[in-house]
């Protein structure tokens, strides 16, 4: 994905970017099974991500949004159980706060 430099992104725009990234991580087949990625979708119970897939997600988010969002630093403040409980909405909120 191309890296972006523009600021002031809406929640919907961020969610759309994250949906593309998550689809790349979990694959089209599983994406088809879960249907839609919502802000309420949780990493573990809805998206069924394991830890190495969350690393992949994190690297793709970092690559897309750059240093402005300190994504890895944000994740490093949590333990594994907290990270598994994260929702897509939590990530959208963090990115929005950093960029806007």
């Amino acid at each position: 994905m191309d890296r972006i430099d523009n600021l002031k992104l809406s929640k919907e725009e961020i969610l759309a970017v994250l949906a593309v990234i998550i689809t790349e991580v979990i694959g089209d087949a599983f994406m088809f099974k879960i249907g839609e990625i919502k802000t309420s979708s949780s990493f573990a119970s809805d998206l069924e991500l394991d830890s190495i897939e969350i690393v992949e997600f994190s690297e793709k988010v970092k690559s897309h949004y750059g240093d402005k969002i300190n994504f890895h630093t944000w994740l490093s403040t949590m333990d594994m159980e907290q990270i598994f409980r994260l929702t897509v909405g939590d990530v959208v909120k963090h990115i929005e706060e950093c960029l806007n």
Binding site: D50, S51, I52, I54, V55, S58, H72, T73, L75, S76, M78, D79, M80, I83
Partner: peptide, 24 residues
């Protein structure tokens, strides 16, 4: 195991003063 066991907590702390390399 995978590099994920270091990625979220231990690697960022070590990276304050070192180049950190993790691999699967």
């Amino acid at each position: 195991g995978s590099l994920a066991m270091w990625y979220f907590n231990i690697a960022p702390a070590l990276a304050r003063q070192y180049r950190v390399v993790m691999y699967d």
